[in-house]
Design a binder for these strands. Structure first.
Lengths: 182, 182
DNA sequence: ATCAGATATATCGATTTGATATAATTTGTT
DNA sequence: AACAAATTATATCAAATCGATATATCTGAT
């Protein structure tokens, strides 16, 4: 799915600026399953405008800075639902952390432990913010997507915590280094 | 993490061709947390060669087709571990399926149900192949990464199956359409 | 009053994707 | 044995996307 379709989908919920779209996709309630940068969003909006799938009102009132509020058109809505009739592509997961973990036996135990601990904290934060979003959000379909994220992160958090425990048992690295090993 | 580092990391385990690297990254034991195409791998290998981080033996024996077997150099190994000393970037998850799910109330119930069922089957397949890989694999650090994938997919599978059940309860769409609704 | 941070649009080089071309080898089928 | 199909293997290219940066205004805090 390309950024054009992403923009179109987001605009089908409510009108907004390119800035808002990026925020939603990179930091907001959609950010756990999609992503897009200014560098792809603004060109996508230009293209969509050219194709008549969205329109914008150039709000340049009272010398205020220009602010393009984009709305989806009927044609755009139609185009979107045609796209949604095709079957979705596969999910993609990329983890630099897991790549790093492949070299854990080449690192100092305490070095890898740091990575683990940081990852646990990150996952906990992500989980909390997804749960909060899920509690606040009143858009039913979003609940499903947020719940998916919650389930995934919960499982990851459990896995990491269990691994940290066994890691410490095998390495005596929990906090103070012990004596009776090797 | 760029494709150059990915190639370098893979080559630190064993020498192989660009073709093999792509296979590992797109279909093999690494594919659940990374990805790369020929279009980025071959240029990356060229660059790495130019920088002296890898070398290749051009195996053109007996008129056989050329086959470049790449190996990491000492310089490359050093470079890799310098990179691994920096902290890893965040995980990225992209799901076209979850994006589609945001419009489930705009679809025919049976249409969305199809998506759900297909996703469940896919997840089950992924889970099985990750579990198999984990059983066969003898490289300890890979176990951690594979186990992570197993945990994630197991949680997702549970979530989807539970959702399907409740979806059917609310829609009477399980197989035959019932009568006493609305 | 000023200064940091948020809002907002936009562009650009570098990177990556996804598709395709080419060709030899291996495997499977009849 | 002959043939077709799949796999192995390198390589390139346009299009899409990333990531960083430039610019300018507005808002809230001290």
């Amino acid at each position: 799915m390309n950024v054009r379709t992403l923009c179109l989908g987001i605009l089908s919920f409510t009108q907004m600026t390119g800035y808002d779209i990026r925020k939603l996709a990179a930091e907001g309630n959609f950010s756990h399953f999609c992503e897009a940068n200014y560098g792809s969003i603004y060109p996508a909006l230009s293209q969509l405008t050219k194709d008549g799938l969205v329109v914008f009102t150039d709000e340049a009132i009272d010398g205020k800075p220009p602010r393009k509020i984009y709305s989806i058109t009927e044609k755009g809505r139609h185009h979107l639902f045609e796209t949604l009739n095709k079957q979705p592509g596969p999910d993609r997961f990329k983890s630099e952390f897991l790549f790093y973990s492949l070299f854990q036996d080449k690192m100092e135990p305490l070095e890898f432990r740091k990575l683990l601990v940081r990852k646990i904290a990150e996952t906990r934060d992500t989980l909390t913010s997804l749960q909060n979003a899920n509690d606040c959000c009143d858009h039913a379909p979003s609940h499903f997507a947020l719940g998916y994220g919650v389930a995934m992160n919960k499982a990851v958090l459990d896995y990491l915590k269990t691994y940290l425990t066994s890691f410490d048992e095998h390495n005596q690295t929990s906090e103070t280094i012990e004596t009776d090993k090797d």
